[in-house]
Design a protein around this nucleic acid. Structure first.
Length: 816
RNA sequence: GCGACCGUGGUGGAACGGUAGACACGCUACCUUGAGGUGGUAGUGCUUUCGGGUGUGGGGGUUCAAAUCCCCCCGGUCGCACCA
C-alpha cells in the first residue's frame, strides 16, 4: 500500500463536494458551533499565512462536526479595495475581472487543501447583493444619527489619492503604500463610533478569558479614556480688547488638577480657532504668522522631534489665584485631543518642563516628595505632598485631584470630564472599487438618502482607471440622478466606503440561510441561533482596526434592533506569523514558500500537518523544509501502517488483562493521545502536543503485533487526526471502518490501570534514583523501598521530612 | 517613555509547582538497498577521573520541591506614543 496523496486527496475532495459534506443543518434545535477565520482579500494566490489560518479553523470545524455539533464554517472574500485598482492602473485589467478571477483561483486552492467550508454560503463583499444590504444599513445608521458628513482636516495619501482613517495611518504614513500622509481639508462621512467609546471600553471585560490579553490591552489603549478636569481660562481685559471682544477665553483639559497652583503658562495648538482668528485679522506679525504656518505644515513625525512655540502676547487669569498667565502656541499641543489647548505646569510635567526651559518661562513647584528633597533638575511627576497651594497644602497629590475638581465644581468654573483618544471613523474613500455611499446631493433638498427600493447603487463597469482623481467623479453619466425627495436633477455621492465597513458585518451575513440569500441580509432567528462566533481566528494585525469596527457595528446593529447581543466574537485566537529564515515571508525579501508547490510535492495533508505541528498556533512559525519532509514521512507511515488493521464496523472489544506488556502499553498510549486530543481541541489549542501524542501512540503500536490492538488504535488515532490530515484519515476510515470511526470517541479507563508505578526518588529535591512499587502500595512500603534505592545517599544522615507524591515521586529532606 | 508578551539543547518545541528537554528536525554509527530515497536499530544538553558534577538569560526570594510563583536586573518581539 503505497501512499499516494494525489489520488487520495482528489478522491475525497470530490466526495465532499458531491455530497455537500460540510453544509450546516437548518435544524436549529441542534447544538451549534460557529467557527470562523478572518476572510481573505483576493490578492491572487494563497500564502502560508492563509494556509495556517484555515488549517486551524478547519481543525476546529472538523472536530466539532465529529462531536455531533451543527457546524458553520464559512468562507468569503473581502474583495473591495485598492489593490484591484492598482492592478488596473498597472496592467489595464478591470478591477471586477481581476477580483473575481483571483477569487476563483483562490477558491480552488482552498479546496485543494481540503478545507471543510460551507460552499453554499461562499460570497464576496463586492457582490451587488452584499452592497445592497450594506447600503440599506448605512441609510439606517444615517437616520439614527450615527453617520454624518462634515468638513475636516483629513489624512490624505497622495499616492493612493484617498483619505484614510486615523487607524490606517501608521507612523505618519499610509498603511498600504507607506507614503507620508498630508493633511487636507475635505468633506467626509464619519461613523459616530465615539458615541460608543465607553461601551467599547467597558465591554472589553466581557471578552476577558475569551480574547488574548494583548488584544484587549491594545483596544483599551486605542480608545484611550482619561478622566480629569475641564475649565475655562479667561483672558484679561487687555487681551480681550486685542481680540476685538471675539473671545472671552478658552477651554483646557487636565488630568492633573492637583498641579493647578503650578500653572505658569498655557499653550494652544497652532490650529486653534483663536490662532486662526488672529491670523485672519492680522493681529500677529508676519514673522510669527510664517512660523505658525510652517509649524502647521510640518509632518506629525517631524513635529515630534523638537518642541517649539511662540508667544501670542495674550494673557489669561489663573482661575484660583487671579495671577496673569501668558498664552503661547506650542507644536506639541494636538488640536484633535481635548480642546486643543492646555494649562502648562512645567514643574510637574516633562513636556511642559522642556518647553519652559527652552523659552525661559517661569517654573513653580507645588508638589514635593513625601520624604527627601525636591530635585530642581527635572519635572517631579510622582505622587507627593502639595505646597504653595493655598488650602490644599499638605495634601496627598493623588487625593487633591478630587478636591480640586470639587472646588471648581462648587465654584461653577469647571467640571469633571472624560476624554478619549478614539476619534470618529472617517469612511469616505475617493476610489472606484468600493461600495458607493447611497446618498444624493440635491441643490434644493441638500444631502438626501437614496430610496431603499433603488438599492443597490451599483458601480458602473465602464470606467477609466488611471490613478488620477476619483473614477466615479470622472465618469460621464453615473453620478447624474434624480433627487429621491423632490425628483429634480441631482448628483450622486461619488465617494465609496472604506473596505473595513464590509468586514464589520460579514460574519452576520454568513448566518443567513442560502435559500433566503436574495431576500434578506439575515434573519433574526438565524442570527440568534448562530451568533456569537464561538471561535474566531485571525492575525494579530487586526487587533485594532477590524476587531474594533466589528464590535462597533455589532452594537449599532443591536441598537437598530437587528441583533440582541453586545459582542460578536466569543473567543478569539490570534495566530502567529509564518516566518522563513527568521523574517516574515514576503515577495520583496524573496523568502516565500508557495502553498501550491508544497501541495504538488507532498500533498495537502503534509502541509496541514507540518503547519499545525511545528509550533503552537499563537506563536510564530518558522518554515523549515526538512520539517516538512518529516511531516510527510509521518503521514506516509501513518497511511502505510494501516495495513496492520483488520476491517471492522465498530471499535474492537479487547480483554485488556489478556494482553502482553507491549500491547497494554500501546493501548495506553492510544488512549492517552485521545485524552490529550480532547483537551487540545476544547481548551488548549496546542495542536503540536496532540500530534506528538499521536506519534508516541504510533511508536508504541509498532512495538507489538496484535491486530485487534492495531485496529482499535487506528480507529481512535484516525479519528483524532482527521481534523488535521482529513484526506488520509477518510481514506483509512473508509477502507477499514466504513467511515464509522469519524465521531466522538470514548475513553476507556481500564487501559490506564496499572499494577505498578515508577516513582522518582529525590533527596532535597535532587533526583537520585527511581523505584517501582505496586500501585496500591502504602506510603510506608513506598518509603521503605525508596530508602533502599537511595541508601548510599542516606547513609549516616538524619531524615527531617519524607514526602510522597502519589504516582509521581518521593522526596527525602535531610540535614545539610 | 508607556503597555503587553517572551527568554529551555545544534534547530522547532514539550513539561498547567512534582523525574527538565516529550515529539520532531538535524547529526553520528550500523542494517536494508546496485546507488539515492524510503524503512529499521542504537546514540545525541554540557562536563566527567564514569562515582558523579552541572544545567531552563543573570541575581535574590517563597516552597519539602521552581523553567513554572514573587521581586530586581539584562536581552528580545510587538503595539501605542508630545493624548495634557
Amino acid at each position: 500500500m503505497e501512499y499516494n496523496p494525489k489520488n487520495i486527496e482528489k478522491k475525497w475532495q470530490e466526495h465532499w463536494k458531491t455530497n455537500d459534506s460540510f453544509e450546516p443543518s437548518e435544524d436549529f434545535s441542534k447544538e451549534k458551533k460557529y467557527i470562523l477565520s478572518m476572510f481573505p482579500f483576493p490578492s491572487g494566490r494563497l500564502h502560508m499565512g492563509h494556509v495556517r489560518n484555515y488549517s486551524i479553523s478547519d481543525a476546529f470545524a472538523r472536530y466539532h462536526r465529529q462531536q455531533g455539533k451543527n457546524v458553520l464554517h464559512p468562507i468569503g472574500f473581502d474583495s473591495f479595495g485598492m489593490p484591484a485598482e492598482n492592478a488596473a492602473i498597472k496592467n489595464g485589467s478591470h478591477p471586477k475581472g481581476w477580483t473575481y478571477d483571483n477569487i476563483d483561483y483562490m477558491k480552488n486552492e482552498f479546496y485543494s487543501l481540503g478545507f471543510s467550508f460551507s460552499r453554499k454560503r461562499e460570497m464576496a463583499t463586492s457582490d451587488e447583493l452584499y452592497t445592497k444590504f450594506e447600503q440599506s444599513f448605512i441609510i439606517d445608521m444615517y437616520e439614527k444619527g450615527l453617520l454624518y458628513r462634515e468638513k475636516g482636516m483629513l489624512n490624505w495619501c497622495p499616492h493612493d489619492q484617498t483619505v484614510l482613517a486615523n487607524e490606517q495611518v501608521v507612523d505618519g504614513c499610509c498603511w498600504r503604500c507607506d507614503t507620508p500622509i498630508v493633511k487636507k481639508e475635505m468633506n467626509q462621512y464619519y461613523f459616530k463610533i465615539t458615541q460608543y467609546s465607553d461601551e467599547l471600553l467597558s465591554d472589553l471585560k466581557k471578552l476577558e478569558g475569551g480574547w488574548p490579553k494583548q488584544v484587549l490591552t491594545m483596544q483599551e489603549n486605542w480608545i484611550g479614556k482619561s478622566n480629569g478636569l475641564a475649565f475655562d481660562l479667561e483672558f484679561d481685559d487687555a487681551s480681550k480688547e486685542k481680540l476685538n471682544a471675539q473671545f472671552g477665553g478658552f477651554d483646557v483639559f487636565t488630568t492633573r488638577p492637583d498641579t493647578i497652583y503650578g500653572v505658569t503658562y498655557t499653550a494652544l495648538a497652532p490650529e486653534h480657532k483663536i490662532v486662526a482668528y488672529m491670523i485672519e485679522n492680522h493681529l500677529l506679525s508676519e514673522e510669527i504668522v510664517a512660523a505658525i504656518t510652517k509649524m502647521k505644515n510640518t509632518s506629525s513625525i517631524d513635529r515630534q522631534k523638537e518642541k517649539s512655540g511662540l508667544s501670542l502676547g495674550l494673557n489669561v487669569v489663573h482661575p484660583l489665584t487671579g495671577k496673569s498667565v501668558p498664552v503661547w502656541i506650542a507644536n506639541f499641543v494636538l488640536m484633535d485631543y481635548g480642546s486643543g489647548a492646555v494649562m502648562a505646569v512645567p514643574a510637574h510635567d516633562d513636556r511642559d518642563w522642556d518647553f519652559a526651559k527652552k523659552y525661559d518661562l517661569e517654573i513653580t513647584s507645588v508638589i514635593r516628595p513625601f520624604d527627601g528633597e525636591l530635585s530642581l533638575d527635572a519635572a517631579f511627576t510622582e505622587v507627593g505632598e502639595l505646597f504653595n497651594s493655598a488650602d490644599f497644602d499638605g495634601m496627598n497629590s493623588k487625593k487633591a485631584q478630587y478636591d480640586v475638581i470639587k472646588t471648581f465644581e462648587d465654584k461653577d468654573i469647571g467640571k469633571k470630564t472624560t476624554n478619549y483618544k478614539l476619534k470618529d471613523w472617517g469612511v469616505s474613500r475617493q476610489r472606484y472599487w468600493g461600495a458607493p455611499i447611497p446618498f444624493i446631493h440635491c441643490s434644493d433638498c441638500g444631502l438626501v438618502m437614496e430610496k431603499k427600493e433603488n438599492l443597490p447603487i451599483a458601480l458602473p463597469e465602464d470606467v477609466e482607471i488611471n490613478g488620477e482623481g476619483s473614477p466615479l467623479e470622472n465618469h460621464p453619466t453615473w453620478k447624474h440622478c434624480k433627487c429621491s425627495q423632490c425628483g429634480k436633477d441631482a448628483v450622486r455621492e461619488t465617494d465609496t466606503m472604506d473596505t473595513f465597513v464590509q468586514s464589520s458585518w460579514y460574519f452576520l451575513r454568513f448566518c443567513a440561510s442560502p435559500q433566503n440569500w436574495e431576500k434578506e441580509a439575515f434573519s433574526k432567528e438565524q442570527i440568534k441561533y448562530w451568533m456569537g462566533v464561538d471561535q474566531y481566528i485571525g492575525g494579530i494585525e487586526h487587533a485594532i482596526l477590524h476587531l474594533l469596527y466589528a464590535r462597533f457595528f455589532t452594537k449599532v446593529f443591536r441598537d437598530l434592533g437587528y441583533v440582541d447581543f453586545d459582542e460578536p466574537f466569543d473567543k478569539l485566537l490570534t495566530q502567529g506569523m509564518v516566518l522563513k529564515d527568521g523574517s516574515k515571508m514576503s515577495k520583496s525579501k524573496g523568502n516565500t514558500v508557495d502553498p501550491d508547490a508544497i501541495i504538488e510535492k507532498y500533498g495537502a495533508d503534509t502541509a496541514r500537518l507540518f503547519i499545525l505541528f511545528a509550533a503552537p498556533p499563537t506563536q510564530e512559525l518558522e518554515w523549515n523544509d526538512s520539517g516538512v519532509e518529516g511531516a510527510h514521512r509521518f503521514v506516509k507511515r501513518f497511511y502505510e501502517r494501516s495495513s496492520n488493521v483488520v476491517k471492522t464496523d465498530k471499535i474492537p472489544t479487547i480483554t485488556h488483562s489478556s494482553l502482553n506488556k507491549e500491547e497494554k502499553f500501546a493501548r495506553k498510549k492510544v488512549y492517552e493521545a485521545l485524552v490529550r486530543a480532547t483537551e487540545v481541541y476544547q481548551e488548549r489549542y496546542t495542536f503540536n502536543t496532540m500530534i506528538a501524542g499521536v506519534m508516541e501512540a504510533m511508536n508504541a503500536l509498532n512495538l507489538q503485533t496484535n491486530a485487534k490492538v492495531w485496529s482499535e488504535g487506528y480507529w481512535i488515532l484516525s479519528s483524532i487526526m482527521e481534523p488535521v490530515i482529513p484526506h488520509t484519515c477518510w481514506e483509512i476510515s473508509h477502507e477499514y471502518f466504513s467511515l464509522n470511526n469519524l465521531s466522538a470517541q470514548k475513553v476507556l479507563d481500564e487501559v490506564f490501570a496499572q499494577e505498578s508505578v515508577t516513582l522518582g526518588v529525590s533527596i532535597n529535591g535532587k533526583r537520585r534514583g527511581e523505584v517501582e512499587v505496586a500501585i496500591d502500595a502504602s506510603n510506608d512500603d513506598i518509603l521503605a523501598a525508596a530508602k533502599e534505592v537511595v541508601a548510599k545517599w542516606l547513609d549516616g544522615q538524619t531524615i527531617l521530612k519524607e514526602i510522597v507524591v502519589p504516582k509521581k515521586l518521593v522526596n527525602f529532606v535531610i540535614k545539610g
